[in-house]
């Protein structure tokens, strides 16, 4: 399975890391039919998916993460054809090829921060390799939260939780990182600091930021704007 995924990842490098073409989605039988703009990303690209509330940003993000299934179009992410893959393939692919930074940092509250960070490896590989622990130590150090490794999530400040959330999304070296509204509740200074961290830590990955925050438009020239009439 792993070699299968690696082969697909290599193929994606040769093509696009993210490819959205003619994608349509509808919630249930009665919901409005949503059409999304076509776009693609090359490996290592930084890209902004910009849109106000109600433009289908979250729906598109969930489609890109394989949490929802598109009814029409081409949707390829990190070598995975998300319309053709089975649920089981998507579960495994999501854990290995994707990193997701959520708007609100979610954690398993009963586990410590370092256990939360190691969880994707445990869930996809059934173990946590020692090199991951080494990488985790240096990453937490760079993010300034190494001293919080043994703490429970609720013991961290909101800022610390956000940095821990970024570390978790990147620790397993995903091909594509999706960040959902990473700066929505931050002032200019903190927003820039968070985006600096994301850019730095996800340097080897393709980064797609889904946001309504216009401040990020200057930072990422590659921008796709979602309009209300598409949703």
């Amino acid at each position: 399975m792993r070699s299968y995924i690696q082969a697909h990842v290599w193929a994606a490098y040769l093509r696009n890391m993210v490819q959205v073409q003619g994608v349509q989605f509808q919630y249930g039988e009665e919901g409005p039919r949503m059409t999304f703009p076509d776009f693609s990303c090359q490996p290592g690209d930084r890209m902004l998916l910009l849109g106000q509330s109600g433009t289908g940003k979250t729906t598109l993000l969930h489609l890109l993460c394989g949490m929802l299934k598109a009814q029409a179009g081409i949707l390829n992410v990190a070598g995975q054809d998300l319309r053709a893959a089975s649920d089981r393939e998507i579960d495994n692919w999501r854990g290995q090829a994707l990193g997701v930074v959520f708007q609100r940092a979610h954690f398993v509250q009963s586990l410590t921060i370092q256990e939360n960070l190691a969880l994707p490896h445990q869930l996809t590989q059934g173990r946590v390799p020692s090199e991951v622990l080494d990488r985790m130590g240096s990453m937490l150090d760079r993010l300034g939260i190494a001293h919080r490794a043994e703490a429970r999530p609720h013991e961290l400040s909101v800022g610390e939780q956000q940095r821990a959330s970024i570390a978790r999304a990147l620790l397993h070296k995903p091909q594509v990182v999706f960040a959902d509204e990473p700066t929505s509740a931050l002032d200019d200074h903190n927003a820039a600091a968070v985006m600096d961290i994301l850019d730095r830590e996800a340097a080897e990955a393709t980064l797609v930021v889904v946001t309504h925050d216009q401040r990020l438009k200057d930072r990422y020239p590659h921008c796709v704007t979602l309009s209300p009439n598409q949703a």
Partner: peptide, 10 residues
């Protein structure tokens, strides 16, 4: 749900 996004299966 978070565990599902991290590779956990149902």
């Amino acid at each position: 749900a978070l565990m599902r996004t991290m590779g956990g299966t149902p």
